[in-house]
Design a protein around this nucleic acid. Structure first.
Lengths: 266, 266
DNA sequence: ATTGGTACTTGCACATATTGAAACTCGGGC
DNA sequence: GCCCGAGTTTCAATATGTGCAAGTACCAAT
């Protein structure tokens, strides 16, 4: 059995870590930061921040915003992300199945994994009708408020889930979002038993999702697949029709990843 | 006239730059590297490389490949790239127009910018018929062998173009790819005069592309738009029909970026 | 089981590259 | 013309990163 979860290794470089922190200061909410803001955010001396930023810029990881001043994330990241994406085994196998599923159900299909307890979107397949999406790719969402996230959390140790909530709080999106440990635990338990998760407007009003887990050769859940649509179109009856199709697609992907077993024991 | 091309600033951090170099060691061709390989590639002591890698890993910029050993680019990059993408003004405005153009012509539509002399794909809009693409997003291509790239190069100073060729060589893709400075110069000149570029199987056999420049408020060419299709479908006649549509779409995007002038003087 | 090889990991003494304070430049708004 | 904030540079002090060399864990071939 593998021991190393996420190596804590005491080998590290302060400089590299602080430079990496600079990158993670940029978020969807604050995609544009000045030197003083960055320095303040990380408690760095402005000189230090400056030198980091200058070097990150040379590497294309950061770039200046000539119009407004300040910095934003650089084009190099887009290139690197492209390479990273193509390395993700599950995504490679999922794309075809996602398109097939989308054609079958005419709904938005999403693929996601867990990153630091949040949902990270790796791909989507949208029916022609839908208005073009802002880049769903790389979008991050609170896990316990989405079907995708709940499926992924359901297959993590409860302790880990609890710690995440403690650390980040509930961060609810709508009035339907879960906000109690007890309810979350029951919900996750149910998801494990049923083999899928439902999101009834917990993420966004008027949007309902169904999600199923994807497993790799070893049986661990490495990703989740979902379909989502407006509430009006996602009647209980429609959901009953949808469910087997989502599960089948997810299972097909798992199969392609080398999972041939029965997941019941997990 | 703007003076600062890419600030040379002598402020820099060796450590940060070397760490960034580690990331750029990973390419589509070598997306998976071990510690010794990385250290060798950059001429670093293995201990040093190790400490960098350990820190990059903590930041999620790198991750281990548990099955094969070695490292690959991390999920964090996908999140960051998503943020970076949404910051790109031209992309925001282009998406709608690209979808409209695609619907009009039923061909693959692409948007790209120049990154270090190469073409970097920022978005695409594919007709339903096309088989799902491997992530075109973030894909990099040799500029002078593609319509997109030639349009972008045509609006850079010739000296810069020449230096790029000198530095990286011709890197041809097919037997039609340009491989002489003289021919390239004539080609770029023609593109500036005509206002569009054509790629006749220079990038891939059997694929023909048409590309047009996109300008921002200041009149500089910041991106390029293209349509591409199989040779058989891109007859000279079809190209004549296509051309005005591509140009119109590109101009519309330029307009939305605040370019209302006449580009003739540039 | 034993061996050898490879990739990864750590400890330590040295000195180099990073650090922070303070001062300077530049440009925009008042 | 003056002020202010963002970005940039300098320089001495030293924390930080460095390379070597030894150590561990794993795999695969004996």
């Amino acid at each position: 059995m593998l021991v190393h979860a996420s190596r804590s290794t005491r080998a590290r470089s302060q400089t590299v870590e602080r430079a990496a922190l600079i990158l993670t200061c940029f978020t969807s909410e604050e995609p544009h930061l000045g030197l003083p803001a960055l320095a303040a955010k990380l408690g760095l001396n402005q000189s230090t921040a400056y030198r980091y930023v200058a070097s990150l810029q040379r590497a294309g990881l950061l770039s200046r915003d000539d119009r407004r001043g300040g910095y934003r994330l650089g084009l190099r990241l887009i290139e690197l992300a492209g390479i990273a994406l193509n390395q993700i085994e599950v995504r490679k196998h999922a794309l075809d199945e996602m398109d097939k599923l989308r054609d079958g159900v005419s709904l938005l299909v999403n693929l996601a994994v867990l990153l630091e307890g949040d949902v990270l979107h790796l791909a989507h397949s949208a029916p022609r009708a839908l208005p073009r999406m802002y880049t769903a790719l790389g979008r991050r969402a609170v896990a316990h408020c989405t079907a995708l996230g709940k499926v992924l959390l359901a297959h993590r140790p409860w302790d880990e889930v609890r710690q995440l909530i403690e650390r980040y709080g509930w961060r609810p999106y709508t009035e339907h979002s879960i906000r109690e440990l007890g309810r979350l635990q029951t919900e996750l338990q149910g998801i494990r038993e049923r083999g899928y998760a439902v999101d009834k407007e917990e993420r966004r009003r008027d949007v309902v999702c169904l999600a199923a887990p994807i497993r790799d050769y070893s049986g661990s859940v490495v990703a989740a697949l979902s379909v989502s649509g407006r509430k009006a179109r996602m009647t209980p009856e429609r959901q009953r029709q949808l469910l087997p199709r989502v599960l089948e697609a997810a299972n097909r992907i798992s199969f392609r990843l080398g999972f041939h077993g029965n997941a019941a024991y997990l």
